[in-house]
Design a protein around this nucleic acid. Structure first.
Lengths: 208, 208
DNA sequence: CGATAATCCGAGCGTTTACTCAGCTTCTCA
DNA sequence: TGAGAAGCTGAGTAAACGCTCGGATTATCG
């Protein structure tokens, strides 16, 4: 079983192996959503991808590595979206920024709700997976920095708390929508309600 | 491995066996917090409890059963606390009810934050565990019913949405505090901030 | 073309671990 | 007090599954 800490593996150089890696990741996502984390075996992933188990282990150190790759792709996308929002000009009202953050969180989960559900509910947050899935701290720091920039007068401790609340609620509402009612992701109902919750909060927190 | 669906086992009748079961559950909690879910083996639990593995399987159908017992105890406590809050007289303001709900959520997690952290982060929500850990829907229904009682004029769909937001945010903030800053559970800082967020929201939602 | 590197293959090894069972000990109660 | 019920024991079983390894196949390039 081993569970070694993600040892370095061969990197795909030729187009052939790049394709193989892509197939493996795609298969991982498919197996994960259809079988769940526990019943996802490396052999099944390889078979589903149409490659041999040996090839799989050329590029991924272990089962964790497969899932971590998917998770960090998602995390990277989310971070990118948030960065884009926080690059908005300083003149934007806090409401607008919050609205954009909510939208960013929701957009990032529209792609593959079923996969996200498995990731959230079944994948144990330990080892490499823990790091891969620990976005919240990063996002909170980014949001806090941005808030501080827009409201320099506020004490940093206060800003951090507000960032925590914002990030926590956006993530929670997004995930609830993903796991309990994917429809609401489409209709935008969750988005509207999140704003009803967070806009007054941010106005009071930053405003006079 | 099997993973059969929680088959019925012997129930502890004499005081001796009741004590054994208690020891096993206590050991489960200890091993869970110190080793994590994956590294929690039934043999280790039995050893830690000071009983034989055979005795363990007299009372618990499988590994899931152990964890499910802990989880549903926690869930039962939480539900009881929420029920107590919702039994408050109708004259109470919505703010007061929300404050009480926040407090209930936080109180229920003060007992064993480390255990809750493992339960939330590492235990896969599948099979028996899924049921055991699916409180949110139940709580939302209870909260919705109460809100409707206090504001009969509101459309049911709207009430359900508000209940979802309330329950989601309380749980999320509570869990964040548990896993990221158990201190804030004690200081009451999280509680105050949660109210700053939720009181304006509920007033607008129920009010004129 | 020949040589070297990159890629791919898949049977099977070794370990882990949930769980059983046959027999022993302790309790209950008529 | 003794017979049956309840409880306890722990070495052993069986099966799952992650992962390796020796070797075949294909690409790259002088």
């Amino acid at each position: 079983m081993a569970t070694r800490t993600a040892s370095p593996r061969k990197r795909p150089l030729q187009g052939r192996s790049k394709h193989t890696v892509a197939m493996i990741l795609e298969a991982t996502a498919r197996v994960l959503t259809s079988h769940g984390y526990d019943r996802t075996t490396t052999n099944l992933v390889a078979e589903t991808a149409g490659v041999s188990i040996g090839s799989l282990y050329e590029y991924f150190p272990n089962k964790e590595g497969l899932v971590a790759a998917l998770a960090s792709a998602h995390v990277a996308e989310l971070v990118a979206r948030v960065d884009a929002v926080l690059a908005l000009p300083c003149e934007e009202t806090p409401r607008a920024v919050v609205a954009a953050l909510v939208r960013a969180g929701l957009e990032a989960h529209r792609v593959a709700p079923a996969l996200h559900k498995v990731l959230v509910e079944q994948v144990p947050r330990i080892g490499a997976l823990a790091d891969a899935m620990a976005v919240s701290a990063v996002l909170q720091a980014k949001i806090a920095a941005d808030l501080q920039r827009r409201a320099p007068a506020l004490p940093p401790a206060r800003v951090r708390m507000v960032a925590l609340v914002l990030e926590t609620c956006i993530e929670a509402l997004t995930h609830r929508a993903v796991v309990e009612a994917p429809d609401w992701l489409e209709t935008g109902e969750i988005e509207r309600e999140a704003l009803r919750l967070l806009e007054p909060y941010i106005e009071r927190a930053l405003g006079p």
